[in-house]
C-alpha cells in the first residue's frame, strides 16, 4: 500500500515539475548568469568612471600631471606627485614593518603554537582585520601619535640632527607624532592580519612529510623554516605581501587621521604628507570643476596601481595552489 501511494506521489510531483519547472530553471540560470555579469560590470564601471571623470585633468596637464607636485586650488593647478609618492612611501613603510611581523605570526601559528592555543590566537589576529579603519585612525591620532612623538621622534631627532642622510630622513621639524611614519606604522598593523593569515594557510598546505623529514635529519626549527618551508612556499608568500600592499595603497580613513594632510614634498619621514586616498577623502565633497577632475584622475591612478598589484598578488598565490 505504502509503496503504491509513494509511487503515485512521485509521479504526481514529476507531473507538476514538468509543468512548472522549465521556466524557473531557465530563469534561475539567467539570474545567476546576470548576477555574475553585474560583478564584472561594477569593475568596468569603476574604471570607466575614473577615466571619464579624470580625463579633463589628464588632457589639461598631460603627462606632467603625474610628475608635477603643484596642488593649488586658487590657481587651478594640479599635480599628482605629492599624493602619489605619499601613497607609495606609506605603503612601503607598512610593508617593511608589517611583513616580518606577519611571517613571524604565521610561523608561530603553524610551527610553535600548541594546538589548543591555535584557534584563539588565529581568531585574535583575524579580528584585527575586523576593526573598522576609522578606529585605527582614532587610536593612531589620539593614543599612538602622542606616545610616538614623545618617545621616538623627540629623542631620535636630537640624535640624528646634523647627520648627513639620517638627519634629513628622520628629522622631525614639529614632533607632533603625526606624519608619514605614523601612517606607515598604522597601515602595517592593518595589513598584518591579511598577510599573516594567507601565509599561515600557505605554510599549512606544505606536506607534513617534508617538514618531518627535515626534523628527522636533525634540523632545528629555524633550519626547517629557512631551508624547507620558505623555499616551498616561495612566490606565494610574495603574493600574500602584494595583497597586503594593495590594501595599504588604498586605505583611506586611518591614513587621513594620522598623515597630517599636508601638500608639500618632504624628504623627512616624520613630516606630514598626504596620500591619494586621504586627499580624495578630504577634498572631494567641496571640489568642483577642474579640482574634481583632478581628484578623479588621482582616483584613476590609484585604481590602476592597485589593480596591477592585486592582479600580481592573485597570480602569484594561485600558481602555487594549483601545482
Amino acid at each position: 500500500m505504502a509503496v503504491v501511494s509513494d509511487k503515485v506521489n512521485v509521479s504526481n510531483m514529476q507531473a507538476v515539475r514538468r509543468r512548472t519547472f522549465p521556466a524557473f530553471d531557465q530563469g534561475f540560470r539567467w539570474a545567476s548568469y546576470g548576477s555574475a555579469l553585474i560583478v564584472l560590470s561594477v569593475l568596468a564601471g569603476i574604471i570607466g568612471t575614473m577615466v571619464y571623470g579624470g580625463w579633463p585633468a589628464f588632457r589639461e596637464f598631460g603627462f606632467g600631471f603625474i610628475t608635477s607636485s603643484a596642488w593649488n586650488v586658487g590657481k587651478d593647478e594640479y599635480g599628482a606627485w605629492v599624493a602619489v609618492s605619499g601613497t607609495v612611501t606609506s605603503a612601503l613603510i607598512a610593508l617593511v614593518i608589517g611583513v616580518p611581523i606577519s611571517i613571524g605570526i604565521a610561523i608561530f601559528l603553524t610551527q610553535l603554537c600548541p594546538p589548543w592555543l591555535r584557534r584563539p590566537v588565529s581568531t585574535v589576529i583575524e579580528l584585527l582585520a575586523a576593526v573598522p579603519s576609522i578606529i585605527y585612525g582614532m587610536w593612531g591620532l589620539f593614543v599612538f601619535a602622542p606616545l610616538f612623538a614623545k618617545y621616538v621622534q623627540v629623542p631620535l631627532t636630537s640624535i640624528v640632527e646634523g647627520m648627513p642622510i639620517l638627519g634629513t630622513i628622520l628629522y622631525a621639524r614639529v614632533p607632533s607624532g603625526v606624519g608619514m611614519m605614523t601612517a606607515g606604522i598604522i597601515l602595517a598593523i592593518m595589513i598584518i592580519p591579511f598577510i599573516a593569515s594567507i601565509t599561515r594557510d600557505i605554510l599549512d598546505q606544505i606536506p607534513t612529510v617534508l617538514r618531518e623529514s627535515a626534523y628527522g635529519i636533525g634540523c632545528t626549527t629555524w633550519e626547517v623554516v629557512r631551508y624547507v618551508l620558505l623555499p616551498q612556499a616561495g612566490v606565494s608568500i610574495i603574493g600574500a605581501v602584494m595583497l597586503g600592499l594593495g590594501r595599504a595603497l588604498g586605505e583611506t580613513m586611518a591614513v587621513t587621521f594620522v598623515i597630517g594632510n599636508a601638500n608639500r614634498l618632504s624628504l623627512s619621514l616624520f613630516d606630514p604628507s598626504s596620500t591619494i586616498a586621504s586627499r580624495i577623502a578630504n577634498e572631494f565633497n567641496e571640489a568642483s570643476g577642474m579640482q574634481m577632475n583632478a581628484l578623479l584622475a588621482l582616483g584613476c591612478i590609484l585604481f590602476v596601481v592597485t589593480f596591477i598589484v592585486l592582479a600580481l598578488a592573485r597570480l602569484l598565490i594561485s600558481r602555487v595552489k594549483t601545482h
Binding site: V42, L43, A277, F303, L310
Partner: peptide, 8 residues
C-alpha cells in the same frame, strides 16, 4: 573588487 580601495 574584494581588496579594491573602498574610497574609489
Amino acid at each position: 573588487l574584494l581588496a579594491a580601495p573602498s574610497i574609489l
